[in-house]
Design a protein around this nucleic acid. Structure first.
Length: 367
DNA sequence: CGCCAGGCTGGTAACGAAAG
DNA sequence: CTTTCGTTACCAGCCTGGCG
């Protein structure tokens, strides 16, 4: 009975337990938050969750939980964080004052950083003005959403660059931006194409739909096609709820990446239903363990690489911002200098035509 | 009563095998 | 090679029971 009491997990996840879980999810985020759903990825996720649970349960001051519980807990944390951040964002947009809602989620930024693409539209809008000023057509969309979409594209581009999915190139110049002719059925669309370098472009289609099945006032569907120079195309289908009642914004990103997983053997995974041979079971088990070890190493390696890439991307981003600021400054200076020269020339011509001495002459027609 | 964990359901998207 | 269809995972949203 006593043992049962000890083993029996606590009703709620304590803050310590949550922070342990968070640290482990952070550690394995590149596997667990990967949007791919092929058999290999799914099996890897499953095993990663199990490994995570094992690691979790080996920590002191946590009660025993199985991987399903931990997974659900992580889902709940994500859902709560999204809800709170969506609410905060909505409040901020509404009042344009930072109300600083008292959040009880510790480290929501950290949680958000684990799944940045899912959180992007939920974070508070940036303080500084967006560089791009949207034209009148974007007025159909919720305040600031257009800019957020543009920034989201930049975020996507950054992720793609990090995954080596595009060659080096300057980011985001608006190529075209038009509002397709509204067909008077309360359905409007906004199409924007962003070009990246010479070979890559991202086409974004925003559509405002009337509610279809549910009783939501309005959905905005964001359809994003990314074409890279390698020929593969991305489709990101998203929706944002602009409903005042509904706090949640669902914004998954489906990455159709051509990039391969870190090197690991081609042994079929346990989830493969076709795997039946008894004779090779033992060796397969051994191979599986080996593979698991390799994969752990690969994950670790991948994490290091990704971390490295994140920092490199950040530096590149800052460098680009510097370049753009310099360019902007240079253009401004040019314009000002031209203006200055124009007025100086004008002054010169005036003083030539109308020398001060001419005003001292007597009136010509005077007797 | 509010919060939380966890179960359940329906919608969506990707995958992969089978069929055309 | 393309299309179709079943399977699977993920997610949002709802509900319930338990706890404080």
């Amino acid at each position: 009975k006593m043992q049962n009491e000890i083993i029996k997990p606590a009703k709620y996840f304590s803050e310590v337990e949550k922070s342990v879980l968070l640290a482990l999810v952070e550690k394995y985020k590149y596997v667990l938050e990967c949007k791919k759903s092929d058999a290999r990825t799914i099996a890897l996720k499953q095993r990663t969750w199990q490994a995570l649970a094992h690691e979790y349960n080996s920590q002191p001051s946590v009660s025993l939980r199985d991987f399903k519980q931990l997974k659900k807990c992580w889902e709940n944390i994500k859902a709560r964080t999204k809800k709170i951040m969506a609410h905060e964002r909505r409040e901020k947009v509404k009042r344009s004052i930072s109300p600083l809602i008292n959040t009880h989620i510790i480290g929501k930024e950290k949680i958000a950083s684990i799944m940045p693409e899912q959180m992007y539209f939920l974070q508070s809008p940036p303080e500084e003005d967006s560089e791009y000023q949207p034209d009148a057509s974007s007025q159909v969309l919720e305040n600031g959403l257009y800019e957020r979409v543009q920034q989201y594209i930049l975020c996507l581009a950054s992720i793609h660059r990090r995954n080596n999915l595009k060659p080096e190139g300057r980011v985001a110049t608006v190529v075209s931006c038009k509002l397709s002719s509204p067909d008077r059925s309360s359905k409007e669309a906004l199409q924007v194409t962003y070009r990246f370098g010479l070979n890559t472009c991202i086409k974004v289609q925003l559509q405002v739909h009337p509610p279809k099945f549910r009783s939501l006032p309005m959905n905005i569907y964001i359809h994003c096609i990314i074409l890279s120079s390698y020929g593969e195309s991305f489709v990101v289908s998203n929706r944002e709820l602009c409903d005042e009642e509904k706090e949640l914004v669902h914004f998954p990103v489906c990455e159709g990446t051509s990039q391969h997983e870190p090197s690991c053997s081609d042994v079929r995974i346990a989830a493969d239903k076709n795997y039946r041979s008894k004779a090779s079971q033992e060796s397969a088990l051994k191979k599986m363990h080996e593979e698991e070890h390799h994969q752990q190493m690969s994950i670790l390696q991948l994490q290091l690489i990704q971390m490295n890439e994140v920092h490199v991307a950040k530096i590149q981003q800052i460098e680009r911002e510097c370049e753009m600021a310099e360019e902007e400054h240079r253009i401004k200076m040019e314009v000002l200098n031209k203006k200055k020269m124009y007025w100086e020339r004008k002054l010169q011509s005036i003083t030539k035509e109308w020398p001060v001495s001419s005003f001292n002459r007597p009136f010509p027609n005077s007797p």
